[in-house]
Simulated assay, not measured.
Amino acid sequence: MTNDRRVIVHPDKPALASSVAARFLTKVVDLLDERPVVHIVLTGGSIANAVLEQVAQSSARDTIDWQRIHLWWGDERWVPLGDAERNEGQAHAALIDAIDIPEANVHAMPASDGGLTLDEAAEAYARELALHAPEGADTPVFDITFLGVGPDGHIASLFPHRSGIQVTDATVIPVRNSPKPPPERLSLTRPVLNASDRIWLVLAGADKASALGLALAGASRDEVPVAGIKGRRRTVFFVDREAAAEVPERLISPDY
């Protein structure tokens, strides 16, 4: 696993969303030149949805063969289908409804009104991942995994001082008593996230500065879960100036 972590700072949230969207479109076109199918993991949150909206609005959007893209989620709130809190629904509104992607390529996590218990839902999503995995693997090779970071340093639904960040024997876990509502969720585990080729963490705002600073300073993953996240090829923190307030200058990429 590479130790290459880069921090790319943007002046504000709109510039951040626009830049990440443009970089995403360019990278996906390159990846589709190299392989038949590309797997992307999406996340929730306002800045992540702003990136998807920028992708949808880009004139380059239709240069991508969306028939060859598979979309997954890093976590999901255990609420009914159609609930405004669902990450999947927000992604549909921001991007998915605007692109020509087969329904079978959009791998939403189960909803609370789908007839499964929370534990059964975790098992069902694990089976879905395995169906699209290479021989001998439990999950697809994720080409790009988007993650947000909470003010407490959580990623997906893996929270500080909770057992989820320590799980290594499952691909998907049920989350109960989440410190952030809603209390029940589904989440990919840390080994699955870290098996991604590229992890793109997108975060904005002064309330994220402390978590980012601690993660890059080598904090414990149990204390600051994002500290335990590294992609196999690359890990990039795309941030705005406010979120970068506590990042050492030596870690900031000269890209911007």
Results as ranks from 00 to 15, higher is better:
M1R: 01
N3T: 14
D4F: 10
R5Y: 01
R5E: 10
A15L: 07
A17D: 05
S18F: 15
S18A: 12
S19Y: 14
L25P: 02
L25T: 05
L32D: 03
D33Y: 15
E34F: 10
P36L: 15
V37C: 05
I40K: 00
I40D: 04
I40Q: 06
V41Y: 08
V41L: 11
T43M: 12
G45P: 02
S46K: 14
S46G: 14
A48L: 01
A48R: 07
N49T: 13
A50T: 08
A50V: 09
L52W: 06
Q57M: 09
S58Q: 08
R61P: 03
D62Y: 04
Q67S: 09
R68V: 06
R68G: 13
L71M: 13
W78F: 14
G82Y: 14
E85P: 01
R86L: 08
G89T: 12
A91S: 03
A93K: 02
A94K: 02
D97L: 07
A98M: 05
I99Y: 01
I101Y: 08
E103Q: 04
N105Y: 03
P110I: 12
L116Q: 06
L116D: 04
T117F: 06
T117C: 07
T117N: 06
D119W: 13
D119F: 04
D119V: 01
E120G: 10
E120A: 12
A122M: 04
A124K: 10
A124G: 07
Y125C: 04
E128L: 00
A130L: 09
A130W: 06
A133M: 02
T139R: 04
G148E: 09
P151D: 07
D152R: 09
A156E: 03
L158A: 09
P160K: 09
G164S: 15
I165P: 00
T171S: 15
R176P: 06
S178K: 06
K180H: 11
P183C: 02
E184W: 05
E184F: 10
E184L: 12
L186S: 03
L188N: 04
R190S: 07
V192C: 04
L193S: 01
L193M: 09
A195N: 02
D197V: 14
L203W: 09
K208S: 08
K208C: 00
A209Y: 02
A209T: 00
A209S: 08
L212H: 11
G213S: 06
G213M: 00
L214D: 11
A217G: 09
R221G: 12
R221F: 01
D222E: 10
G228Y: 00
I229K: 03
G231Q: 12
G231R: 12
R233C: 12
R234Y: 08
T235W: 11
V239H: 00
V239A: 02
D240E: 04
E242T: 00
A245F: 02
L251F: 10
S253H: 02
P254G: 13
Y256D: 10
Y256E: 00
